[in-house]
Amino acid sequence: MSILVYTESENGSFKKIAHEAVSYAKGIADMMGTSVTALAVNANDTSELGKFGASKVLEVSNDKLNNFNAEAYADVIAQAAKQEDAQVVVLTSSANSKFMAPLVAVNLEAGYVPNVTELPSSSSPFTVKHSVFTNKAFSNTEINTNVKIVGLGKNAFGIKENETSATTEAFSPTLSEDDFSTEVVSVDKATDKVTIADAEIVVSAGRGLKGPENWGMIEELAETLGAATACSKPVSDMGWRPHSEHVGQTGKPVASNLYIAIGISGAIQHLAGINASKTKVVINNDPEAPFFKAADYGIVGDAFEVVPQLVEKLKEFKAQNN
């Protein structure tokens, strides 16, 4: 018996969500009186996983798995879960994790619940709280199958240290040609930009900016904060910004620590997608803009004045605090 957690890495290094997922798996293991086995694929150094509560690390090293492939990765996870007799499999909310979770679920005949926001409220029956209606509500859902799969919501649990001595073991899954019947032929990814999925801070702007030529100050603000840039739906529909930046109910969800909304009115569909962010700041020249009701901090003012001032101030602040 164990809790199996898949730890996502990129170019050999673990992503932060891998640390969060192990922390969360440890929380479940403690509730259920068992231990955490982490599964790592082509990671350079797995010693750090013990710090967050893994007692055992299964290390897969296989060149065929250098590129993510949902079918193959799902198969690897299912094989590991069977070997370890896992009661619970912990996945995350990364695009890759969400891609393969349903495949793992069918393979293991396991019930799957995504977007889980906290530790199970009970381990028997196994009941988890997860967000539904794009963060407008939560559901308390019971999983009835022997094996359970939970997809931890973005930034929902946090990283918790829990020093455990971890043993490592090589794991060699059996892969067949069928695992590679979808083939990734090219990847197009900006490596120098923070992604909305990984970002702790997201700077987002809307139609209040008047035109794409005014995004320079938004990018500068994002760069100063080490943040990702995002936008409202009409901004991407008009082609001012790429679709990948569209956030909201029909775009990407944002669950960052800080979300700064500039010249965005705060329509219900926009708010739904960004509600899970912890601290929200709004800069808008209309004191009646609905976004202020959903915000923690606000400045009523003209973005073209406030944003450059904010950039200056933050640069000063960073110079003092570094």
Binding site: F68, S94, A95, N96, F99, S181, T182, E183, V184, V185, S186, V187, D188, K189, A190, K193, T195, I196, A197, D198, S244
Partner: peptide
Amino acid sequence: IREIDGGKETIKTK
């Protein structure tokens, strides 16, 4: 073409 975190990838399949 599939959207991934931070970009996209092209997939061939049957």
